[in-house]
Structure formats: structure tokens, C-alpha cells
Design a protein around this nucleic acid. Structure first.
Lengths: 346, 346
DNA sequence: CTGAAAGCGCTTACAG
DNA sequence: CTGAAAGCGCTTACAG
């Protein structure tokens, strides 16, 4: 009690069996009579026996640790994923060893070597990295790889990410439900897979109701606020009639709102606006001003942890796991009209 | 290469020495001739030898893992601390095992037992927990304890947290620098240590310049937006002349702004407002609207990790480590006047 | 300075 | 079904 922890030998002695038998009685491998199993269990219980995790890891080769490669870990996109995953893994007694993924190929290779020496049971990659799959293969990295927070590309066995198509669908359903029919989509480069998926979800859901985007397609630019501003001005100048804008993210939505305000268009009365990322979730100041798609990144982290656990257990995992997104409804679509102070004051 | 990793035995064989000698040559313990040390090192280098961490942990008893007890891990106050700490520890090859600190005493005791069985090298407690020091003592928990994100109380050896006094001082300096002299302080309960420290920092820094709070002292209520609203209305009703408000947090500041707007007071022209927490950091939409104290929680996490590393190394650590806060200057103190749309649109 | 050996606490074939 | 033994890869007194 005071010093040395109780060991399997103590339990075996207390139960009157050998350590080998005690181990089998407590573990899953090997046959033991029910009677001795009970006796050993009772002894273990009585002594509050906790097997030394280090010894067990040493002999089994499972470290109960997973490596985590994180792109910009302290950013708002990664943090909730990392914490959600760590929490879920921690519940299962799995530790995490985090390394920065913002690194050169040789640095990444070095990280992987360290993690292999650590005998991590799996590697979770959060965000974008240069060719980690390829590097892992070239190093003969022995643990399963799980990816989170990226769009899947070739070579990845298991990717956990947001349901980007659904994001577009939710936006469409919400706006259609509000009676909007002349909808514009101002978003980032079509070369980004997530952008393409969201656009497809939006367009398809609108088509199903016989509606198409006012400009005939998405307006592709960047994720910058300026792009939202500029694209909206273009729409206004072109006298394109529109009663709703789906923005690529909350920053772009900000630019849209600014342009609308300058032009004297009321939100949501004249134009409803939807963002993406729901940054307001983090400020939590009470009233939601911008309607926005919330990617539930903590849930992505948890789902990624579940995928990691499955991979460790040797179970087959789906190649792509899409985590549902949610729509955070705010005043930019449902009113009352956005107005001075009431919007900065919370 | 293909299968079994290179082991110390391989290195020893390559260098023509025994494993024991190889171990001494690579490690710090025991004397070895410089010649053989070099030979062993060369062999290790050539074979790209990485000692099996599990074997090493097993024999040394150090797991290279620290337990983390987190109060509301996925919250905005904890996440940056957790990620900052994990990242720093990861750089040093230390893994983290996270458990929820929002638990009953017996659950916490159970967590600690698990962590002891895991042989964690230290325990990092983030946020508030019921009596963890006491529980650890009653369990004879063998690893050092480090606390982050709480105000120190009796019994804690090492606490890493924000410099709360400095928060008050920064607010004072900023407002005085802007020529404000009639300053109100609307904050939460004086029973909260952080509140008391911030108030003390504010009052002392003002006193040094011959200024005192308009109401003769801080107005203590809660951290709720409503309190900010109500307290401001009281000030207005009492015809208390004031040209600045320091709010307990950004939520309270929101209430203050709402009340001022309703009363037709311009911000910052008539009244400057400072918040605390700088939630806008997370939305990062471009222009800072609310001036606010930013507690730099990622830095708290990093500093906590450093304290953990020191504790593991057996070094003496300071009982309280205060991490500097910063002032994020926004339009609520420096203008231009907060106005419609321009403030929600970014 | 170096080698041979014991040992960390567990798991798991291998005999009985 | 159970016990005795080997072994996981390293570190570290202990002899030489």
C-alpha cells in the first residue's frame, strides 16, 4: 500500500495459484476453471489489483498510446477535433502523443520514426499534411492510420470528416423553407474538394425543388471576407435579383453583409445570408446573429477516436466516415432585421 | 528493416560489445571508455537504432505519459490550455492521457487509480476540481501535481494561471492613456479570487494616478450579460457620470453595450468599454470591435507543460506561475464609433 | 572499463 | 485445468 503497488504475484499468492494461472484467470486468453477464476477475481478485487500498464504494454507490444499529427493544432479548426478525440480516447485509457504536422517531409519522417519507437497503436492525422500516407509506407510504419478534418484522397484507408454535401443540403432546405427562391452561392475555389461537395449538395437539393442558383452556378473566389464583399457588389451591380446568399464561410458572409448594408438591403428581409463554420458558437454571447453551418468538430474528433479504436481492435472501418453537420439558425435568415448595436452587443 | 526493429542487441553485436556496455555507452549512467562509446554510437547511428520506449519505460518506471484532468475539456476556456500543453509535451516525447475532471470524488479517485496504474509521470489538472490534492494524498498518488487555469488555494504545490492583477492594470493604463478618468468596474462576485485580483490591479493602477472608480468601488454581480445590462442602467439612472466601463468578461461587456446603446450613449465617444476573455480572437473576422483582455490560454498551457517537465525532472518549481495577459485593442475604446452592420458584418 | 547476470511485471506457449 | 518457464528489450548493480 505505502510503497510497492500490488502485483499479479500478490494476487496469485492470495488466491493460492501461480502467476500464470492468475494471469489467465484475469485475462481473456487460456482456459481456467470457473472456480479458480472466481477465486482469483475475488483476490484481485480484495487487493484492488491494477495490472502495471507498463509491464503489460511491454509484453503485449501495445502502448495504449496513439500518435497525433496535427496541422496548426492551436487553431480553431483543429482544437475541437483534437480535444474531442483525446477525451474519447482517454475514456478508453488511450493516451495521445501529439506532434506538429506543419513540417517538412523529413521532419515528418523523423516524427514517424519517434512514434514507431514509441510503439504507438495507431496514428491520427488531423488536417492537411504533405503525403503522410506515402511517408508512412516508405518507412514501413506498422500502425494503422486514421485521418480527420480533410477530404479523402487516394491512398487513405480511413478518413473522418464533416458531411460537406449535407452542409449544402441544409442550407438549401432552410432557405427554401423560408420561401427564398433566388439564391446565390459565394464560395471559395472549386478546386477545393469540400467546396465542390457543398456546392453539389446545395445545387442538387435546389434542383430537386426545381430551383437553380441565380447566376446559374456558384461564384468561386476565396475564403476571404473581401471576396464576399466583392462578389455581392457584382451581383448588385449586375442587377441580379436575389433574396438569399449562401456564403463559403463566416468570413465571406461578413463581406456579403457589409456589401448589403452599404447598398441599403435589409437582412434578412431583402436578403437572407448563411455562413459556414458557425464561429459564433465559440463566442456564445447569447443571440445568434449569423445563420451558419456548424461542422460539430468535437464530434468529428470523437468519431475519429472511435475509428482509431476500431482500427486498433483490428476491425474493418469504413473508408470515409461523414459526420453530420448542423444548422445554427440566426437572425441573418429568420430576423428580426439586423440592426445597430443589437448585433455587436452580444 | 522489414520486420523486427533494430534492438540494442543488434547495436552491441555491430560494435562488438555486450548489451550492457552498449546501454552504458548510449546512456548517461556508468563509465565507458571514450573509444567504445564512439564505436557504439557509430553503430547505433548506422543502424538507425531507436530504443524501444516500452521496454525502457518498463525498466525505468517512467511512462513518458502525463495524466490530464480537465474540467469541461471541450469548452473554450480549457481547449487552448489543453492543446498548448499537449503540443509542448509532445515536442518532448511526452504523451497525455486525458480524463474528465467534472466528476464525483469517487470517480476522481478511480481516475487517479487508473492513472497510477498507468504510471503517469505527472498529473496536470486544468480548471476546477473537487479537492484533487486531497484525493491524491489520500491515495498516496506518487506523481507530481501541476494545476492550470485556476487561482491557487492551499495545498497546491504548483499552479500556472493568468496574471489577473495585470489584467486590471492593463485596462487601467489603456483607459488612462485615452484620457478617461471616470471609470466604472462591473464584474462578477468578489468571492471569486480572479475577480478580486483583477479589481485590485485596476484599483491600484488607477490610484497610482490619483484616480478612483466612479462608484467608489467595483460593482459585483455575475458573469452574465444581464448583469452588465442591469448595472449599466443603474449607473445611468443614478446619473453617475462615467466615461469608461471595465467589464468582468465579454458577456458582461455585451450587456453594458446594450444598455449604453438604448440610452443613446456613443461608444467609445461617450463611454469606452473593455471586456475580458477576448472571444473575438476565435472568430478572427478582421476588425476587433470590443477591446478586451486576452488571457493567452495557449501560453498558459505551454507554461503548464514546462512546469510539468520541470516537476518530472525533479526540479523545484515556483508555487505560482503567472502568465502575462495581453490587451486586444478594438473599436469599443479607440473608435470609430460602433455603428450598424459594420460591427456584425465581420 | 567491460561482461555476465539479474530483474522490471506481465503474458503465453509448453508440458504435465 | 494448472504450473513452471521462457521471454519481451532494456538498465543497472555486481564481479572481474
Amino acid at each position: 500500500m505505502s510503497k510497492g503497488n500490488v502485483t499479479l504475484g500478490d494476487v496469485a499468492a492470495a488466491a493460492g495459484v501461480s502467476v500464470g494461472t492468475a494471469s489467465r484467470a484475469l485475462g481473456a486468453v487460456g482456459r481456467v476453471s470457473e472456480a479458480t477464476r472466481e477465486r482469483v477475481r475475488a483476490a484481485a478485487e480484495r487487493l484492488d489489483f491494477r495490472p502495471d500498464a507498463l509491464a503489460r504494454s511491454f509484453v503485449t507490444g501495445r502502448s495504449a498510446t496513439v500518435g497525433v499529427l496535427a496541422e496548426h493544432a492551436v487553431g480553431l479548426h483543429s482544437m475541437p477535433v483534437l480535444v474531442g478525440a483525446s477525451e474519447r480516447l482517454g475514456e478508453r485509457g488511450i493516451a495521445t502523443l501529439m506532434r506538429d504536422a506543419h513540417a517538412t517531409r523529413s521532419e515528418l519522417a523523423e516524427h514517424l520514426k519517434t512514434l514507431r519507437a514509441r510503439r504507438v497503436d495507431a496514428l491520427l492525422v488531423v488536417g492537411d499534411t504533405p503525403d503522410i500516407t506515402e511517408i508512412a509506407e516508405s518507412l514501413d510504419f506498422p500502425s494503422p492510420l486514421v485521418f480527420a478534418n480533410i477530404e479523402p484522397s487516394a491512398g487513405q484507408r480511413c478518413v473522418v470528416t464533416a458531411d460537406e454535401r449535407q452542409a449544402g443540403e441544409l442550407a438549401a432546405a432552410h432557405l427554401l423553407g423560408l420561401g427564398r427562391r433566388r439564391i446565390a452561392h459565394i464560395t471559395a475555389s472549386a478546386a477545393l474538394p469540400a467546396v465542390a461537395l457543398r456546392a453539389a449538395g446545395l445545387v442538387d437539393a435546389l434542383s430537386a425543388r426545381g430551383v437553380e442558383l441565380v447566376t446559374g452556378g456558384s461564384l468561386h473566389g476565396s475564403y476571404e471576407r473581401e471576396w464576399g464583399y466583392e462578389a455581392t457588389q457584382r451581383l448588385l451591380t449586375a442587377r441580379e435579383g436575389f433574396d438569399a446568399v449562401v456564403a463559403g464561410n463566416d468570413g465571406v458572409a461578413g463581406g456579403v453583409l457589409a456589401a448589403l448594408a452599404e447598398a441599403g438591403r435589409r437582412v434578412p428581409d431583402d436578403v437572407a445570408v448563411i455562413g459556414h463554420d458557425n464561429l459564433e458558437r465559440h463566442t456564445a454571447r447569447g443571440i445568434q446573429s449569423l445563420t451558419s453551418i456548424d461542422p460539430s468538430r468535437v464530434d468529428i474528433g470523437r468519431a475519429a477516436a472511435d475509428a482509431v479504436l476500431a482500427a486498433i481492435a483490428g476491425e474493418e472501418t469504413a473508408p470515409v466516415i461523414r459526420v453530420p453537420v448542423a444548422l445554427a439558425v440566426g437572425r441573418s435568415t429568420t430576423g428580426p432585421t439586423l440592426s445597430p448595436f443589437r448585433d455587436i452587443d452580444r
